[in-house]
């Protein structure tokens, strides 16, 4: 499944020259080549307040404060049956399934059937890429920690539905770090939005491995968004 995993079934047969070279390469690759197995279904087990920061600690710029003060519930995309995307959906309350491929890692969300593609092959966002709720994500391994950088996010989204805004301008980006501790997948997300925030907006959450978990359909009816 993963490119640098050693295939023991092949290596412990009479060792060929190619097999020996593969062993030497894998050993020489060392920690830099390390990566972790995140595959499977994971159930949310996020901390209180959905892993959002204490509102009193969030330092808004004057422009950000003006947006915060003008927030109304009808601006929440999820209440209009639009996907939360990034950054609002960084900490998501429904199960996810992670699929690891050679060139990308897929995060399949139950919530609004979101699909995140995290490109792992070194590519960068093409010039024509339009802003979207899910954004454009690239990743790399730092040891066994997956580091994701996301750009190209839509401006009409939010950090959190308490009204914390997100500008989505060309200076915004998100850095996530995901790491596994046994059957727990931890992550943090730093949302960089200097237009609206004096310092990065930091969230964090955790997922519990759920080998018998299920991903369900999430139909959504805007009339039941609760915007009343």
């Amino acid at each position: 499944m993963l490119s640098l995993r050693v295939n023991l079934g092949q290596l412990w047969s009479p060792i060929s020259a190619a097999g020996a070279a593969a062993v030497i390469f894998a050993l020489m690759a060392g920690p830099a080549a390390a990566q972790a197995d995140f595959e499977g279904i994971w159930n949310p087990d996020h901390p209180p307040r959905m892993g959002q920061p204490d509102p009193s600690t969030v330092r808004l710029t004057p422009a950000g404060q003006a947006e915060f003060d003008s927030f109304t519930p009808d601006k929440d995309p999820t209440l209009r049956c639009l996907m939360p995307g990034i950054p609002l959906g960084l900490v998501d309350p429904y199960p996810i399934e992670i699929v690891q491929q050679e060139h990308q890692i897929l995060i399949l969300y139950e919530h609004f059937h979101q699909v995140r593609r995290i490109f792992m092959d070194g590519r960068e966002a093409p010039d024509h890429w339009l802003p979207s709720f899910i954004g454009y994500s690239t990743g790399e391994w730092d040891g066994e920690t997956l580091v994701i950088r996301t750009t190209h996010m839509r401006p009409d989204n939010y950090m959190w539905t308490a009204g914390f805004p997100f500008s989505g301008d060309e200076n915004t980006y998100v850095i996530e770090r995901w790491w596994r501790e046994g059957d727990v997948l931890q992550f943090t997300g730093e949302v960089h939005d200097p237009t609206y925030y004096e310092e990065p907006y930091v969230v964090g959450g955790r997922w519990d491995y759920a080998p018998d978990g299920e991903i369900w359909e999430y139909e959504c009816i805007p009339e039941f968004g609760g915007i009343e």
Partner: peptide, 12 residues
């Protein structure tokens, strides 16, 4: 039932 809902209820 999870203590953390998706929405911040106090907003609404």
């Amino acid at each position: 039932l999870p203590a953390a809902a998706h929405h911040n209820g106090a907003t609404y």
